[in-house]
């Protein structure tokens, strides 16, 4: 019987590939957009403007303090009530990008705050503009602090992308649900789904570990 289930599972491999493809595409797009947005928000959060900083802070707290499933339902089912119709893919991208941006915003803000005030003062004193100070002096030093947790966050976000199956996107998790209807062995099917996520995430886990080691070493060497 197990053998038959394997045969039947093997027949579902095009569906599995589609699922993995969807998970990867969804994650990739929202991680790229979320990273850009997250850096922007992180820079604004630590910038001089109190109002902007506190609005961003409140939004980040709200998103971090509510379940992702609820956020995605709000975007997909509630927004249409206000006349904003989104297809599932767009809704998934928006929800994941927003989530990524909020977490990355905090990581970037922490990195920026870790740069000693003296560095900013030196840049200020030599007449660098606000953007030049950020670009030439603050961000390169903040990146040392930012990179390891950033890559770690990517892993968490790829796994969070499984929640988009709830609005009908055929990602890896939903493929699991579909297949399990034909092959009634939940343990086997979702074990394989887990393996699929692990294959996508493991290289990033390794990268995060390597970055952490390298940044740690560099910190000792470059410290003032």
């Amino acid at each position: 019987m197990i053998w038959q289930q394997f045969i039947s599972l093997a027949g579902s491999y095009p569906l599995a590939l589609r699922g993995i493809g969807m998970t990867v595409v969804l994650s990739l797009i929202s991680l790229v957009l979320g990273t850009l947005l997250g850096f922007g928000l992180g820079i604004l959060r630590t910038g001089g403007n109190r109002l902007i900083a506190s609005v961003i802070g409140a939004w980040v707290d709200l998103i971090r303090g509510t379940p992702f499933l609820v956020q995605i339902f709000l975007i997909f089912f509630i927004l249409p009530e206000f006349g904003i119709e989104l297809d599932a893919f767009t809704a998934g991208i928006i929800a994941l990008t927003n989530l990524a941006a909020c977490f990355i915003c905090e990581i970037v803000a922490a990195g920026i705050r870790s740069v000693p005030t003296g560095q900013v003062e030196a840049a200020l004193a030599s007449g660098l503009s606000r953007w030049q100070r950020m670009r030439q002096v603050v961000l390169p030093q903040a990146m040392r602090i930012v990179l390891p947790p950033l890559v770690g966050q990517y892993v968490l976000l790829i796994k969070d992308s499984s929640v988009v199956s709830a609005i009908g996107l055929t990602d890896l998790t939903r493929v699991g649900w579909l297949v399990v209807q034909r092959v009634p062995n939940g343990l086997l099917v979702f074990f394989l789904v887990g393996v699929g996520y692990f294959i996508v995430c493991y290289p990033l886990i390794m990268l995060a570990r390597r970055l952490e080691r390298r940044m740690g070493a560099a910190h000792g060497e470059v410290q003032l």
């Binding site: 003296g118 560095q119 003062e121 030196a122 470059v222 410290q223 003032l224």
Partner: peptide, 9 residues
């Protein structure tokens, strides 16, 4: 500055 504040990178 007293503490130099050179850019370490």
């Amino acid at each position: 500055f007293q503490s130099f504040n050179l850019y370490p990178h």
